[in-house]
Nucleic acid binder design. Structure first.
Lengths: 338, 338
DNA sequence: GTCTGGCACTCGCGTACGAAGAGTGCCAGG
DNA sequence: CCTGGCACTCTTCGTACGCGAGTGCCAGAC
């Protein structure tokens, strides 16, 4: 077990290193934080912290830098979440309220997060399966060609083309549209499959093929993987990463382009509050030198999607967590209003 | 005026420099290209080319590298467009044909371009104003709340919320929907404003406010700037930029995040064929060390949007131009089919 | 007039060496 | 258990130097 002072030393190391980006030595520590002990004592503590794996030295005679394990302890025990100041809160709210539609909300959120945290921002669109159905629309584009449009209570709109096996009359179309909506409107998307499975039976034999096709298209859009979308921004902030540039930044950019990777990353965070994944805690190898701070957001109690930032493990955790949490809260409000 | 051989020397310099990324000297030139003359002669030619501003030396006593002006001459006079090989063409076609909707087409196009050219790809969604209307849908979400959905022949779907000044009955809604579609379906979006301006007059006084609101929302979505969207990808390719990394890459990433900048960039290219903007020819300062290769694409004769790549001025112009042109052609085909 | 070989010159790059500085580990004493 | 002192390690930085690539120019050949 680590003594109280050793924890203070760790905290001081993390704070200094995050600020200066340079390994921090015992002398600098005693000067900048009044720990009430001499450098020699701090050195002993540092040796102990190093034995436990919380800090490391890049070279034999340089200062110490925190390890992933050190950051983990810092985040869990030594630091809180730094709340946003009132002016910042107001700025967030004002900026988000200007949005005209969901795309705009998401785009603005990305910009905002990137700017506040000076890191790469990732915002997931509200999940279909965790939203409720506002409306399902069917349009006839050609005799045997329909367009299916899904609209969620969060303002998300998805459309799919449907090629019908047989021509589908205007009256059958109206019938299907009405039946579909009466069954699913206001219900959760997750429940849709069971709500519509017997629908073809209500139709004439000649139309059943088309109805089934429409329904299977509808269900396809709800399959995991397909239904998730996200937006990223602030990649220019990657340039503030460090000195050993290309080697680190390359895999990060590649990972960011793989939506699957990012979705898995966000999906792993089950915590209801802000989740922090540090360095090697991220399964994806390219992100081993980054930390991911994420949180769910939603219009009501339940989270409909996640948002977060990706940055160097050497980041201002309290500040970042505060920004992410605040933005999520306001996005939730905006969605609830729309 | 430059002699034929001097042009050959310039061509050789560009080709070698693009290949090796290193300044090329007179000796290496004569060894790798059989120009039929000695290094000394080439040196004289190089001195002349330098006087004219087509090449430059980074330091006294290093080889020469092409200037923007040199690349310009190369692109205009010395090199053609390298066509894609049949297998490549087939791969492009296969990859694009798997798309399920417009978002997917655009996303696949971005990936494809980025992979083929190993550069940053930019694809603009089909412009609304240059497309034709397939359908306009109006949905009632709440007594005084409508959703307006626009669908183009290229598969693009835009939606907007409309807050009505007064409740709008279901029959009025159906009426408006029918009148709207009969006027604009199949027409070009650019013509929509003049086609609908007298529409409110056909309605009862109590509904006119709502009809006007709907129409003005419709027109707002068509305003330049608002109606343009684009997708970028392959930013990881920026890491192959050069050695003086962060300084160059930073402004490029920043420019890429500014959609306005990119749209202007693509918009400036008026040429019906492939357009190349080299280095300082790009108005935006951050892109002064990049070249932009772009081309319009569309389902029919006219271009509905642009696509292209952004890369270092030191790029394989013939190959890049070939890839961009080929991808644009196939995207056009796909859009025409859908 | 144009091309060529020769030659002296310039510079950037890599290596080597040494001094400076920062930081450490350890130890003996309070 | 803390502290001051001290020897040690390593990185960093500046300087010097030799090497090699490439150039510009010139006199001579075709």
């Amino acid at each position: 077990m680590l003594s109280e002072r050793r924890l203070q030393v760790l905290r001081a190391i993390v704070q200094d290193y995050v600020g200066t980006e340079e390994p921090v030595g015992s002398k600098a520590l005693t000067e900048r934080h009044n720990l009430g002990v001499s450098p020699a004592t701090v050195r002993n503590d540092m040796a102990a912290l190093e034995d436990e794996g919380f800090i490391a030295q890049p070279h034999t005679s340089a200062g110490r830098i925190p390890t992933d394990k050190g950051y983990r302890l810092f985040v869990d025990k030594l630091a809180g979440v730094k709340p946003m100041s009132p002016p910042e809160r107001r700025a967030i709210q004002n900026f988000l309220e200007g949005a005209v539609d969901l795309d705009d909300v998401v785009a603005r959120t990305v910009r905002l997060l990137a700017q506040l945290t000076r890191q790469v921002a990732v915002v997931q669109y509200p999940s279909l399966t965790r939203s409720t159905v506002r409306h399902v629309e069917l349009l006839s584009l050609a005799p045997a060609r329909l367009m299916l449009v899904l609209i969620t209570d969060t303002g998300r709109v998805e459309q799919r083309m449907v090629d019908c096996p047989a021509p589908f009359g205007e009256s059958s179309l109206a019938d299907l549209r009405a039946r579909l909506n009466s069954r699913v409107a206001g219900r959760r998307f997750a429940d849709v499959p069971s709500l519509v499975e017997d629908l073809p039976e209500a139709f004439e034999a000649e139309d059943r093929g088309t109805v089934s096709t429409v329904l299977s298209t509808l269900l396809e859009t709800l399959v995991e993987e397909n239904e998730e979308r996200l937006m990223i921004g602030g990649t220019a902030n990657l340039t503030r990463f460090g000195h050993d540039f290309p080697l680190v930044i390359r895999p990060v950019l590649e990972a960011l382009e793989e939506q699957v990777v990012l979705l898995k990353l966000l999906g792993e965070a089950k915590d209801p509050g802000v989740t922090v994944r540090i360095g090697h805690e991220n399964a994806h190898e390219g992100l081993n030198s980054t930390s991911v701070v994420s949180v769910g957001y939603g219009s009501g109690g339940e989270a409909v999607a996640k948002l977060g930032v990706v940055g160097p493990t050497r980041m201002d955790y309290p500040g970042t967590m505060g920004a992410v949490r605040a933005v999520a809260r306001y996005v939730g409000q905006i969605l609830a209003e729309s």
